[in-house]
């Protein structure tokens, strides 16, 4: 039996990048400590603020909901959880009840916003339309762009001053690598623990950005949280290849993910200097902020012969 480096109980995890073994209690304590440190270091949450949390029902967002609920209780902040139901049969319909159940057990205000009501089609239907119309775009493009847009609008309508997402270290490093591979300077320089305030956008925060995906999963499982562990049926392509490459690198060379993040942070001020700045304006179709005449969501919807149906997302019926 392997013992915890700190308390001598049976180890549940070998944190190889730090050369320590952790038992269930010490792992839970350590993840909670990193979460609080990230909030304090980057002044993510203002006293008596109102935080919206994007929650899918998966391990990361459920773990963050529990951590934030406790934090907000102590700091007198308000927390509201938002689930975007993209309409992925066999996947999202299983995770939404999990998100709702956790929110109810914590007494957290909970809202669901659906693609179907907002755009008149589920993601499953959009994927079929995209094939018919031969747009050449993959499901993650539609899902990512439209989910972010709805999250921002919902958080704004709910009068949140911050929008928390459960991006972990793996997500962040994958995004860094993806933007390198695509040579996308403008997206690369926007990555960070917080996003600077911009008109029309609720500033986003990522309190789990310095916690490995595996450690977030262990936090959720060892805490006995009810989470959905289904696999998105659309997960494929370059995102998956980058994820697998980074995991192999981490297995063979522990600490690689942290090192990629640290290097990016050192480069970031220089990247900002050479990144073109865009002037933001209102989308001609939906009125959301965009750097072009119409926003990316409306552009994608237009390509599918769809449009935004709901001007306002949050009504008493939604919650």
């Amino acid at each position: 039996m392997l013992k915890c480096t700190f308390c001598g109980r049976r180890a549940a995890y070998h944190r190889r990048y730090a050369g320590v073994l952790l038992c269930d209690r010490c792992l839970i304590k350590s993840v909670a400590k990193r979460f609080r440190r990230a909030i304090a270091e980057h002044q993510m949450i203002s006293p008596r603020g109102r935080v919206a949390l994007a929650v899918s029902g998966g391990k990361d967002s459920i773990a963050l909901m529990h951590l934030l609920a406790e934090y907000c209780k102590q700091k007198n902040c308000e927390l509201v959880a938002i689930t975007i139901d993209e309409g992925i049969k066999g996947y999202r319909n299983r995770s939404v009840p999990m998100a709702r159940e956790n929110a109810e057990s914590l007494g957290v205000e909970y809202v669901v916003v659906s693609f179907k009501l907002a755009f008149g089609a589920t993601l499953d239907q959009m994927v079929k339309l995209a094939k018919l119309k031969k747009t050449g775009l993959n499901p993650c493009t539609y899902c990512g762009v439209m989910r972010r847009s709805l999250l921002n609008q919902a958080a704004r309508e709910l009068e949140a001053d911050k929008l928390a997402t459960a991006h972990n270290l793996d997500d962040e490093v994958q995004a860094i690598m993806l933007n390198y591979v695509r040579a996308d300077l403008s997206r690369l320089h926007r990555l960070g623990p917080t996003y600077p305030p911009q008109k029309g956008f609720v500033p986003r925060i990522k309190p789990l950005r310095e916690v490995l995906e595996k450690e977030v999963a262990l936090y959720a499982l060892l805490s006995g949280l009810k989470v959905h562990l289904g696999v998105c049926p659309y997960a494929s392509g370059i995102h998956t290849e980058i994820r697998d490459f980074l995991n192999e690198l981490e297995t063979n060379h522990p600490n690689s993910k942290f090192m990629i993040l640290r290097m990016f942070e050192r480069l970031k001020p220089h990247i900002a200097r050479v990144t073109p700045k865009f002037e933001m304006r209102r989308c001609e179709l939906c009125g959301e902020q965009t750097s072009a005449d119409i926003c990316k969501s409306c552009e994608l919807l237009k390509g599918l012969g769809l449009k935004r149906l709901q001007k306002t997302l949050i009504s008493p019926k939604c919650s």
Partner: peptide, 14 residues
């Protein structure tokens, strides 16, 4: 090992 959690005889272990 980065993508799985292993239970040995019902206990999560290193």
């Amino acid at each position: 090992r980065e993508t799985v959690v292993v239970r040995r005889n019902e206990k999560i272990v290193a």
